[in-house]
Simulated scan of single mutants.
Amino acid sequence: MIPRFQRFLFAAMLLAAVVMAVVLIRMRERAHDRLMTAVDSQPLNELSSASSSAPVEKITLLVANDLDGSLIPVERSFPMPKDPNARARVLMEKLLEEYAAPKSTHPIANASGVDEVFLMPLPQQKGASQQGEMAVVNLDAAFVQAQPSGIEPETLTLLSMIATLHANLPQITEVRFLVDGQQKDTLAGHADLTRVYLASDTQTAVRP
């Protein structure tokens, strides 16, 4: 016979697991709904106009290098909007332009692969000086199809995006990836898109 307290403990653990699963599913649905609302309320031509009229700023792109699996800091100057969500999207667009350029160190043919980037506040950690944010990066299917398959090239693509966001918007400490507004298992068959990535995941790849 199983002792009563063990049955009670098992039931409590099972209930906690179910509740956590429901909460995580609901959080994902809310993130998706808010992301789609942001996309609908801010057309592409408005974003382009806002970016073109914004002051030029120096930004740092963490560009992937397939030769040694590293991320190389590259400084560029571009007009940058003030809105953090729009800034994050411009950062992703400029990074992907680097990959579509001739003689790229990490070639990907499709340079227009980010539909939207939406920032969500995270619970403030005890002792933290500021509240962190999660970036939800919505990739389009055409970019995913253009991504070279393989664990290393796929991982470098994701890490370069995460590192670029964090380098220019330090409040971004976590990143999730969607494809056409939906969760996808992998980027191109290998790199996991179901998990939350941390900005700290990129530290070992960044070249000093």
Score class of each variant (00 low, 15 high):
residue 7 R to W: 14
residue 9 L to E: 13
residue 13 M to H: 10
residue 14 L to M: 12
residue 14 L to I: 11
residue 16 A to V: 10
residue 17 A to D: 09
residue 19 V to A: 13
residue 20 M to N: 13
residue 21 A to M: 15
residue 21 A to L: 14
residue 24 L to T: 07
residue 24 L to M: 11
residue 24 L to N: 07
residue 26 R to M: 08
residue 27 M to R: 08
residue 28 R to A: 02
residue 28 R to E: 02
residue 31 A to P: 05
residue 32 H to G: 06
residue 33 D to W: 12
residue 33 D to A: 15
residue 33 D to N: 12
residue 34 R to Q: 14
residue 35 L to T: 07
residue 35 L to C: 09
residue 36 M to R: 05
residue 36 M to N: 09
residue 36 M to W: 03
residue 38 A to T: 03
residue 39 V to Y: 07
residue 40 D to M: 11
residue 42 Q to G: 10
residue 44 L to N: 11
residue 49 S to V: 11
residue 49 S to G: 08
residue 50 A to G: 02
residue 53 S to E: 14
residue 55 P to K: 05
residue 57 E to F: 01
residue 57 E to W: 04
residue 58 K to T: 15
residue 65 N to C: 08
residue 70 S to L: 06
residue 71 L to Y: 01
residue 75 E to P: 02
residue 79 P to H: 09
residue 80 M to N: 00
residue 82 K to P: 11
residue 82 K to Y: 13
residue 85 N to T: 03
residue 86 A to M: 14
residue 97 E to S: 12
residue 102 P to M: 06
residue 102 P to H: 08
residue 103 K to N: 15
residue 106 H to P: 10
residue 106 H to V: 15
residue 108 I to L: 05
residue 111 A to T: 09
residue 112 S to R: 11
residue 114 V to N: 00
residue 115 D to K: 07
residue 115 D to R: 08
residue 118 F to A: 02
residue 122 L to D: 02
residue 123 P to W: 11
residue 125 Q to R: 15
residue 125 Q to Y: 08
residue 126 K to S: 15
residue 126 K to N: 13
residue 127 G to I: 01
residue 129 S to V: 10
residue 129 S to G: 12
residue 130 Q to N: 10
residue 131 Q to R: 06
residue 131 Q to E: 04
residue 132 G to N: 05
residue 134 M to H: 01
residue 135 A to S: 05
residue 135 A to E: 03
residue 135 A to I: 05
residue 138 N to E: 03
residue 141 A to M: 15
residue 142 A to N: 12
residue 143 F to H: 04
residue 145 Q to M: 13
residue 145 Q to K: 15
residue 146 A to T: 00
residue 147 Q to I: 04
residue 149 S to R: 08
residue 156 L to C: 03
residue 159 L to F: 07
residue 161 M to G: 02
residue 161 M to P: 03
residue 164 T to D: 04
residue 165 L to V: 00
residue 165 L to C: 02
residue 166 H to A: 10
residue 166 H to V: 06
residue 170 P to H: 05
residue 171 Q to N: 09
residue 172 I to T: 00
residue 172 I to A: 06
residue 173 T to I: 04
residue 173 T to N: 06
residue 174 E to Y: 00
residue 175 V to A: 00
residue 175 V to E: 05
residue 176 R to S: 08
residue 179 V to S: 03
residue 185 D to H: 10
residue 188 A to D: 06
residue 190 H to K: 12
residue 191 A to C: 07
residue 196 V to N: 02
residue 196 V to F: 05
residue 197 Y to I: 00
residue 197 Y to Q: 01
residue 201 D to V: 02
residue 202 T to H: 01
residue 203 Q to G: 10
residue 207 R to P: 07
residue 208 P to E: 12
